[in-house]
Computed example of a mutant assay.
Amino acid sequence: MPANKKYLTQSPWQRFAKITAAIIGGLVVAVMFHLALASWFDHVNIIITSTFTAFILWAILMVVAFLAKNGWKIWGLYLLVSATLGLVYYFGIQILPIV
């Protein structure tokens, strides 16, 4: 049974935004989350654990991107979260430098 057309995204730009936000944006957020954690805690344990948890987080973020109504808002959200995690990473490196 095919999907109901009223629930599918009509605009090709929205479809492009959702697909790229899911693949690229979700990956960037997942990696930045683990980098931010590694800058504040024991980086060896975080990096080893991130081989599993980054994939799980990425899959969750992909689902969230496709559930959203507007792909550009998801891109904005993912960029905002990535920038925030980048600041956390930056200040973590400044306060607790890795020796």
Rank of each mutant, 00 (worst) to 15 (best):
residue 35 L to I: 01
residue 27 L to K: 14
residue 55 F to M: 10
residue 69 K to L: 08
residue 37 L to Q: 13
residue 51 T to V: 14
residue 76 G to Y: 09
residue 71 G to E: 01
residue 47 I to D: 05
residue 48 I to S: 14
residue 36 A to M: 00
residue 43 H to V: 14
residue 55 F to K: 08
residue 29 V to G: 05
residue 33 F to T: 14
residue 41 F to A: 12
residue 57 L to S: 05
residue 32 M to L: 10
residue 38 A to I: 09
residue 43 H to N: 15
residue 27 L to F: 15
residue 51 T to H: 03
residue 69 K to H: 13
residue 77 L to P: 02
residue 62 M to H: 07
residue 58 W to V: 00
residue 67 L to H: 04
residue 77 L to W: 00
residue 63 V to A: 13
residue 67 L to M: 08
residue 68 A to K: 06
residue 41 F to T: 15
residue 59 A to Q: 13
residue 73 K to Y: 04
residue 35 L to V: 01
residue 60 I to T: 14
residue 50 S to I: 03
residue 59 A to F: 13
residue 46 I to C: 10
residue 64 V to K: 09
residue 28 V to G: 03
residue 51 T to S: 12
residue 38 A to N: 08
residue 29 V to L: 11
residue 64 V to G: 04
residue 63 V to G: 06
residue 49 T to H: 10
residue 58 W to M: 04
residue 76 G to S: 09
residue 77 L to T: 02
residue 76 G to A: 11
residue 49 T to D: 12
residue 52 F to S: 15
residue 54 A to Q: 01
residue 32 M to H: 08
residue 58 W to R: 01
residue 69 K to Y: 12
residue 58 W to P: 00
residue 36 A to Q: 10
residue 29 V to F: 10
residue 34 H to A: 02
residue 46 I to G: 07
residue 69 K to Q: 11
residue 66 F to P: 06
residue 43 H to C: 10
residue 40 W to T: 05
residue 38 A to E: 03
residue 44 V to S: 14
residue 31 V to Q: 10
residue 26 G to Q: 05
residue 73 K to L: 11
residue 30 A to D: 06
residue 45 N to K: 15
residue 39 S to L: 02
residue 45 N to G: 15
residue 60 I to R: 01
residue 59 A to Y: 13
residue 34 H to F: 04
residue 70 N to A: 02
residue 35 L to N: 13
residue 30 A to C: 01
residue 34 H to G: 02
residue 63 V to C: 05
residue 33 F to D: 07
residue 44 V to E: 14
residue 60 I to L: 10
residue 28 V to S: 05
residue 66 F to H: 08
residue 44 V to C: 00
residue 39 S to I: 04
residue 47 I to L: 14
residue 76 G to R: 11
residue 74 I to T: 13
residue 51 T to G: 15
residue 59 A to I: 11
residue 54 A to Y: 06
